[in-house]
């Protein structure tokens, strides 16, 4: 059976690509290097596929349909929101595993919305380019990537408890998949950032450190216990993306996380945290 053997929690900050020189160079380098560390560790692992848990930013899904959770089961390309250094490309999806996760969900109480053809946004494409594609370059092996999108930025939001349950369902589905392959899961988002509101540029390091501690202690219940009001007040509307962390953590089921890097970067309007979810 297939197995989820590890994962990461990483940000997906588009401002890094638009204004790479905005922060001081040393701080910027630490952030870029953190992605490289993740890529190296993925390359060193035996994983042949990655599930990236991200969220739409009201670009992919419109007012006519706003899914709570969606998985791409067919052709994938992206991102829709191309950036300097992040151009649209074809994505090697693991269609068989994605379809299996959706079908397994139907049998276990999780009615996935499926995208038979999907265009990602930066929530998927930043970690895909900087971690998955880079790991392919380092290791010389092919690594497929499955987009999972949660309603973490556009209401009605998926509840944090449901995001946790969904992660558990993903793990159960992977473990029921007839294959000996190893899978990584990346939770893409956060931490504190205020998007499109007057507080934009504010970063709350104290809140970010709280989230990091909970993630490193594998304390999913502690993350779920935050009310949305607390998250919005202390971490901004962008921090609602901790749902993506919760889902990934529940999928990996690691006993702990290791902080790779944290940088509060107001110039990039985000507190940027990188955590490895370690199984061993």
């Amino acid at each position: 059976m297939a197995e989820i053997t590890g994962g990461f929690l990483v940000p997906h900050d588009p401002i890094m690509f638009v204004a790479p020189d905005a922060p001081e160079a040393e701080k910027a380098k630490k952030v870029w290097d953190a992605y490289e560390t993740c890529a190296e560790r993925l390359a060193e692992s035996g994983a042949s596929s990655v599930i990236i848990v991200g969220n739409d930013h009201y670009m992919l899904f419109g007012t006519t349909c706003l899914p709570k959770y969606c998985i791409a089961t067919g052709h994938v390309e992206g991102p829709l929101d191309q950036l300097p250094g992040l151009k649209k490309e074809q994505v090697q999806n693991h269609e068989a595993l994605a379809q299996h996760i959706a079908a397994h969900g139907s049998e276990t109480g999780f009615d996935w919305a499926v995208a038979r053809s999907f265009t990602t946004d930066h929530a998927f494409s930043i970690p895909y380019k900087l971690i998955v594609r880079r790991a392919e370059e380092i290791s010389g092996r092919s690594i497929s990537a499955i987009p999972v999108y949660l309603a973490s930025a556009v209401d009605p939001f998926i509840t944090k408890a449901r995001a946790c349950q969904l992660g558990e369902q993903i793990r159960g589905a992977v473990e029921a998949f007839e294959s000996d392959e190893q899978v990584f899961v990346i939770g893409s988002g956060g931490i504190s950032h205020w998007v499109g509101v007057k507080e934009t540029g504010k970063v709350n390091e104290e809140f970010d450190r709280q989230i990091i501690d909970l993630c490193c202690n594998a304390n999913i219940d502690g993350l779920v216990a935050f009310t949305d009001e607390q998250v919005l007040e202390n971490g901004g509307n962008g921090a609602m993306e901790i749902r993506n962390f919760i889902c990934a953590m529940a999928a990996v089921n690691a006993p702990r996380g290791e902080l790779i890097e944290y940088q509060p970067v107001p110039e990039w309007v985000t507190g940027l945290g990188f955590i490895e979810l370690k199984k061993g």
Partner: peptide, 18 residues
């Protein structure tokens, strides 16, 4: 300009668009 319209004094004005 968007930030000013919101009444924000944010100095951070990078666009998410490339």
């Amino acid at each position: 300009s968007y930030n000013r319209k919101l009444g924000s004094d944010s100095a951070h004005s990078a666009s998410i668009k490339g």
